[in-house]
Design a protein around this nucleic acid. Sequence first.
DNA 1: CGCGGCCTTGATTGGGTTCAAGCTTAGTGG
DNA 2: CCACTAAGCTTGAACCCAATCAAGGCCGCG
Lengths: 268, 268
Amino acid sequence: MNRLSLRGFDFDQIYGNLRSDPPDSARQDRGMDTPELCGACPVKQQSLCGGLCNSDLSTLNRSGRRHRLRRGDTFCWAGEDSGACANVLDGMLKVVAVTPEGAERTVGLHHPADFIGNPYRDTSEYTITAVTDVELCLFPRSSFDRLLAESHDLERELLRRTLASLGDARSRILTLMHTSAEAKVAGFLLELAGRAGNRAARGSLDGPLTFDLPLTRGEMAEVLGLTIETVSRQLGQFKAAGIVALPALRTITIRDADALRRLTLALN
Amino acid sequence: MNRLSLRGFDFDQIYGNLRSDPPDSARQDRGMDTPELCGACPVKQQSLCGGLCNSDLSTLNRSGRRHRLRRGDTFCWAGEDSGACANVLDGMLKVVAVTPEGAERTVGLHHPADFIGNPYRDTSEYTITAVTDVELCLFPRSSFDRLLAESHDLERELLRRTLASLGDARSRILTLMHTSAEAKVAGFLLELAGRAGNRAARGSLDGPLTFDLPLTRGEMAEVLGLTIETVSRQLGQFKAAGIVALPALRTITIRDADALRRLTLALN
DNA sequence: CGCGGCCTTGATTGGGTTCAAGCTTAGTGG
DNA sequence: CCACTAAGCTTGAACCCAATCAAGGCCGCG
């Protein structure tokens, strides 16, 4: 995993250069773009910003910067100063707890329009890592906190998003508790399909839907509380049953979403 | 489970009388007390109210009412209008999701100083039920929402509490994922002991600590994602190992907290 | 006394982990 | 362009922990 690094706010300066790639010469490309108007924002409505008045929005806009992470880059490390917060514009990140023994446990995922950051805390409790290439709208903590202290609207939106995250966490608890591996994998595929489907601007899942799996088998296992072997076997069974096709390792076609839905309900 | 019922805001009036006990004549006793000053509040500092300015506090104080629930009473039902929110002053409640099949899954617990309610939503997603006798400081939704719209402080405190709940939920996810039944039960006993210990104003857990188990074996199983038999067996083993004593069915003595801590770490 | 919760204990079963190969794919460098 | 490598994936076999099924004990209460 590579450290996040951005102009005027360089983790490497503080913690030493632990990056393994890419070299500095390449960093300009994937690094910070010039400030853009929110007009180009793909999640304008769904994100935090959707509920802000124009004055707050333009304040945020002035401090926000586009930033890209590559698959495997980490946004912030558990226990360390986070220094920035961000809206997810595109891609997917995982929220990982590191146990005392060093094992990694994924406690959640972040999707486009989600907010990442730790308001009122200096350090992050979790490590947040990109599982796909990710595009962020990134705010320095200082200016975000300043606006947060002033803006009632921003705080309300943040509260809304936090409540949504709490709902996510609780539904994850439900799936972890008493569901079979089959139901877990089926449900997760449906969730991914839903996001991939929405992205393609087709809300329904009637016909077959093909999309890239953003996570490796191992990452899926981590999210679902299973082992990599079990996930692989379940996918194999779904394929054998004709419910899905696996045209490539990281590509899947949902052929029978209803069958998956039925499996999700079974043995609840 | 009995419906919450309070003067001027009577669920029975709306939904019909589903109470099984107690009769109306008895309700006066456990019902609403006269408004009290926050000076008598046992969780003044730790709760929402701790971060409020005097003006907001007195506004809340005017609309807040003490209210008691008995073990088994439910504060609000999943999918129905909640109508009120509250601070927990004393006791313990469980947050329960009801599956389409009617099975109940506990996704969380509420303790003293916790806030219960669904800001920005009309209905609760979960059923919240008292697992012990509970004392609440209860606010009608209308007046709470009104203050929430005005008070930056109240919103910030609510955000803080929600972030704390999110942390709780995520640590629950961690314990549900890859921990053995032994570690789950050991960890839960430590959690309960911590609360019972704090209550007795002794932060440490060095000597033996005896306290009443607020939950039945079945409720513990529900929280931990286990079966009642497994919980019972684990307690039996701890007892056989001399780690705990069980002087009565619902009473426990922690004799060796360190042994429990070691079990929590093992097979992480 | 008998009934119904709640709890304990035993025997059996099964789903998922673990251990162990081997395979596929992507990325790298000659 | 191909060979090499490492990471990711699949598949098989054995084991083990917790669920399940089943029976009986304890206790409060009508």
